[in-house]
Design a protein around this nucleic acid. Structure first.
Lengths: 140, 140
DNA sequence: AACAATTTTTTTAATGATTCTAAAAAAATA
DNA sequence: TATTTTTTTAGAATCATTAAAAAAATTGTT
């Protein structure tokens, strides 16, 4: 059902978040919010957009990702110093990270039970809890 | 008891790990392995060394940290893209990270119970599991 | 539809963390 | 001691990211 009006959904998503549906934001959002959860880097999304025929500068991709994050449409995941990943799954959840091919996979929050964490300092507030299961390829 | 021969311990630590006890490695190791667990960045350790009167180039600090890590004397902790932290506590454990003052605190492994993690792919092997409790200051 | 006001995009340059390189210095080996 | 190997160094190079300034697009208002 999304075949007929491929843009209408992302337009709603953007305007709903108070963002102008510009050409480049629409193009990127179409790549990002295509139904399945995605984990992208700025560089990766940029080449993807380029390959799909869209001419968008890398700086704009950075801007867009940060804007979408601020608008609550993306989550930033930190798994390796060096580059940021953005996750279209904005619900609280955890990750498996393959350090060989830099691939991120979601772990359902409900599946995991985390107990015994220390109470945090009274002058601090909890932001979030990240669980990262780091794996490598066996053969390598 | 470490007052009398302040270098003997770190020399043993380095040679025991198969590393030559060079002047700069000794100086850095004295700062790192002074009894309590530490979390340092290359930049931070470099200024610390400079302040203590040692002339060590930043590149050497990077080299030394990576070498110590490879030798199993340090652990790299990834909490924010942008810069790496090195932890002198090489036992398996978790962290609290204050995103306002970039401060890392250890969480004892035994205190935490983590259950229900998905079984990893058969072609992959578990490297380690990181739990990062992200906090911010209340007032800010 | 046209207009001005505001936002976004773009290009280019700057930044910060880290690595690389090639030469000099130090340490180990013969 | 002479020679080989390893480390250190300073500076250049690189990578991801942000900043600044100008150009272009979008919006609400006539």
């Amino acid at each position: 059902m999304e075949k007929i009006r491929p843009y209408s959904n992302v337009i709603r998503t953007l305007t709903g978040a108070g963002l102008r549906p510009t050409r480049q934001r629409l193009a990127l959002s179409r790549l990002l919010f295509d139904g399945k959860n995605r984990h992208v880097t700025a560089e990766g999304l940029h080449t993807e957009a380029s390959l799909s025929g869209q001419k968008i500068s890398l700086a704009t991709v950075y801007n867009a990702l940060n804007t979408l994050k601020s608008a609550g449409l993306l989550q930033e995941i930190i798994v390796n110093s060096g580059c940021s990943y953005f996750d279209t799954n904005i619900t609280e959840h955890h990750h498996i990270f393959n350090e060989d091919n830099n691939e991120l996979t979601d772990i359902n929050l409900e599946d995991v039970q985390l107990k015994g964490l220390p109470s945090i300092n009274s002058c601090e507030k909890l932001e979030r809890i990240d669980v990262i299961v780091r794996v490598k390829n066996k053969n390598t």
